[in-house]
Design a binder for these strands. Structure first.
Lengths: 255, 255
DNA sequence: CGGCAAATTGAGGTAGATCAATGTCGGTGG
DNA sequence: CCACCGACATTGATCTACCTCAATTTGCCG
């Protein structure tokens, strides 16, 4: 692709707090928070899985529960990284701006993953984070995690796993959906975007975003999707091109 | 690129121990080892920078100093990850094998970086690691680092930095040298491969490896290099196409 | 000197980019 | 309720950057 100059969907608004904005969770209330988080989609916020009450008492900064509207930005590339964000529900894209103004989506984060781990080290966000749909996150000050991770071996282990997951994702992103012909890229992307609850269904994104993920133009992505639908490997479930039924997963996985 | 079927340089030999094979470093000798490592290229083995003698006494498994011959493999993709490897000198490529037999280089590791951090979590290597040139590494059992990292806050911090560096590298690999037209990819790769000691000189690799790094064919890489040399942005320093002088860094960096 | 591996260069074909038109959905206002 | 509008997906027609295939060239080593 000879870099298309179009810019991605506008993210005009900053962080927007939803119905339950800025819920402060600290000390005694923290247990409530943990209980909530353990209840929330599977592993979300596992970071704090085994902290004890004393640990929570030592937290002197607020942990906020935020609802990020679709298209809103969690933080900008190069911005000061004060907090990390555990994704509870929804999807976050990590975007890097190229020198020529193009945007490249380097990774997606979903429930249980953490955005902004940079807050633990350099203090500068390496990429922009934007919600792809309405998304719930917990905003945790980096200092909180840094100090707790010294004390709690299991938090320490969870951080390792988060980092490892990020590296794995990044490598897979390159090897799976940014390698080979257009058809393979789109097919791999589809397989990765299956709903955890129902693997026979995918929720996709704007063709522009899908292009920024695969390194293709939006037109090529659209054509490939149409071709897959025509061949019967997938079947549209709506008329906006966002949901598809996967009819033949094995055929999609072919090379 | 419609996936070229050629396979990468053969890595027939396994790990080969060089002139100083299997030097066991433990307990009392460990201090020697640390001293050596601090002397070795800049930050190599910073992982152990601030451990004390008691920490070293608690190491019950051998830490080996290995010399990996160019082309030899440290570990295979999917293999059991028992150890991690700090690179002291040389260059290691991390390779992922695609479904169609193609190989994709997802990252390079140089002095001060660590290969096989997976040994700290899943215990399975996510990618193959192969020395691109004669390379010195320290092989450290994952169990050693796991247990020490509980005790030493600074080792803990060093691990965070290593993970973060890996993610940054992976993202940059995608955004910088796997995006945009062929010329840009090759130029970005050149800029990244400058010698730390002399930023006006680059050491490159086989055109095949460079293709696996950029997602281009070896012919395209060769053509782009020739074009850059013809335009005077770079100048060959040998006749094997491995070393070049960078004449105009700013022009190389252009978009 | 001969043989091999790797780099370079050339000629032609093609996958995907580009430019452009049309179609579809959802919202808004009369 | 319908006409209009803007955003986005789809489809078509060309164009081109890169791949593919293939021939030379170059350097290295026995």
């Amino acid at each position: 692709m000879a870099h298309n100059q179009r810019t991605a969907t506008d993210c005009r608004s900053g962080i927007r707090c939803g119905p339950t904005p800025m819920i402060e969770i600290k000390t005694a209330q923290a247990w409530q928070g943990v209980a909530d988080c353990q209840a929330c989609a599977i592993r979300a916020m596992v970071l704090f899985a085994d902290l004890n009450e004393e640990d929570f008492r030592s937290i002197h900064q607020p942990i906020d529960d935020l609802l990020i509207a679709a298209g809103a930005r969690l933080y900008p590339e190069g911005g000061p990284a004060g907090s990390l964000f555990t994704v509870r529900t929804g999807t976050v894209k990590l975007v890097r701006l190229l020198a020529d103004g193009q945007e490249r989506i380097v990774r997606l984060l979903r429930a249980g993953q953490v955005a902004g781990l940079e807050a633990l080290t350099t203090g500068v966000y390496d990429s922009e984070a934007v919600a792809l749909e309405d998304t719930q996150v917990c905003r945790i000050p980096g200092a909180v995690v840094r100090s707790l991770s010294q004390r709690s071996p299991r938090l320490h282990g969870q951080l390792m796993q988060q980092w490892h997951g990020a590296v794995r994702e990044a490598d897979a992103w390159l090897a799976d959906i940014n390698s080979g012909p257009a058809s393979r890229r789109v097919r791999q992307l589809i397989l990765r975007m299956r709903l955890p609850g129902d693997p026979a269904v995918v929720r996709l994104f704007s063709r522009e975003d899908m292009g920024a993920m695969t390194g293709l133009t939006l037109e090529t992505v659209s054509r490939e999707l149409s071709a897959l639908a025509r061949t019967g490997l997938i079947e549209p479930l709506d008329r906006q091109g966002r949901s598809y039924r996967i009819c033949d997963p094995d055929a999609l996985a072919l090379r």
